[in-house]
């Protein structure tokens, strides 16, 4: 069976404004990197209401774009799109299929895999091609304490979802183009059972999204007062960063889920990550340890967060924020 399967497919995801999400460019780029090793071609599959901006997709390395025009108005049409993706995969017969491990991708991908009756690995952070030309899918497990290397030895295609913001988006400078196909399928009735009654977006605009932040300042359970949280938000603004948090602050209702960094939240990889009062549970570390520079502030000198940090402060978070802001303001005044 495996001799017949050729090509790498990236199943893309669009946001509410019909723009391709960053993670889609990341999986196309990774697909291209793998394709260069195996000598296959890369197909980007886009299921959307409107035709996407093609040049951006080709620029990441896609040889071909398969566009499936969405007819339903559901933002997350899990049932139809899992079926549609499986139909496209059935036609292309690729050896590898990649999904972005967003909330949507993490529910879509296992359904597609179950329809195709193939193996799937969730939340991969890197890939290798082994000596048998198999895709080695590498993912953190056990709360980020270990990395598991996983293969699908007997089934095709080899599917994986990929953590956003971990792999790099590549871009070629040259004017590139490729093959474009539009396909359509009649969606069966039993795939139309879910209706969307209402949609509410969180107010976060693009600049305020943690996945876009080049500097992130995040609070953990050591931040025990609203005043400190406010101070942290002000500090984040002052240095041009966005604020984030660990799971504890979401559970206490102080921060929205959209701001959560970690295994059950988002993976981020900013240039600078500043952790205030975060103890560094492995679940949290799994979501941020690939950041460029990590600065940690914690009362407890033994906190695990220091094991991944570049600079650590054994200090109270509130005091640290006040002193740090004073320091930066003085710097500004003195030129």
């Amino acid at each position: 069976m495996s001799e017949m399967n050729r090509g790498i497919v990236a199943v893309c995801e669009t946001d509410g404004n019909e723009k391709l999400k960053n993670v889609s460019f990341e999986i196309i780029s990774e697909g291209k990197r793998l394709a260069d090793i195996t000598g296959e071609k890369v197909t980007a599959v886009v299921m959307a209401e409107k035709k996407p901006e093609l040049s951006d997709i080709y620029a990441c390395g896609a040889d071909e774009i398969v566009f499936v025009r969405k007819v339903s108005s559901l933002l997350y049409d899990i049932e139809s799109e899992s079926w549609l993706a499986s139909k496209v995969i059935e036609k292309i017969k690729p050896s590898v299929v990649l999904f972005g491990a967003t909330d949507y991708g993490r529910i879509l991908a296992p359904k597609v895999a179950a329809i195709c009756r193939c193996g799937i690995t969730a939340d991969c952070t890197s890939f290798e091609i082994n000596e048998n030309k198999k895709l080695v899918q590498i993912r953190p497990a056990l709360g980020g304490n270990i990395l598991a290397h996983i293969i699908s030895p007997h089934t095709m295609p080899q599917m994986a979802s990929v953590r956003p913001s971990v792999l790099k988006k590549m871009k070629t400078e040259k004017e590139v183009t490729g093959h474009f196909v539009e396909v359509s399928f009649d969606i069966p009735e039993n795939r139309k059972k879910v209706k969307e009654l209402k949609r509410e977006s969180f107010e976060a605009n693009d600049d305020d999204k943690i996945e876009n932040g080049r500097i992130i300042v995040a609070a953990g359970s050591g931040v025990t007062s609203r005043e400190t949280l406010q101070l942290m938000n002000n500090f984040a603004k002052l240095i041009g960063g966005v604020s984030g948090c660990s799971r504890k602050l979401v559970e206490s209702g102080w921060m929205p889920h959209s701001k959560q960094v970690g295994q059950s939240g988002k993976t981020v990889s900013p240039d600078i990550y500043i952790a205030i009062g975060i103890s560094g549970a492995s679940q949290h570390l799994a979501g941020m340890k690939t950041s460029g520079k990590i600065i940690a502030v914690n009362n407890d000198a033994d906190a695990d967060i220091f094991s991944v940090a570049d600079i650590g402060f054994v200090m109270d978070g509130n005091l640290w924020l006040k002193e740090m802001m004073k320091f930066l303001e003085n710097r500004q005044n003195n030129g």
């Binding site: 996983i150 220091f306 402060f313 005091l319």
Partner: peptide
């Protein structure tokens, strides 16, 4: 359909430069 073929510990940096109440300005 899937097999775990290898397990390895996730890395940690382990070379953090530490500061405290006394010398935080150097860290800043």
């Amino acid at each position: 359909p899937t097999r775990v073929v290898k397990i390895e510990p996730a890395f940690s940096k382990g070379d953090c430069e530490m500061f405290d109440d006394g010398n935080f300005n150097e860290g800043f």
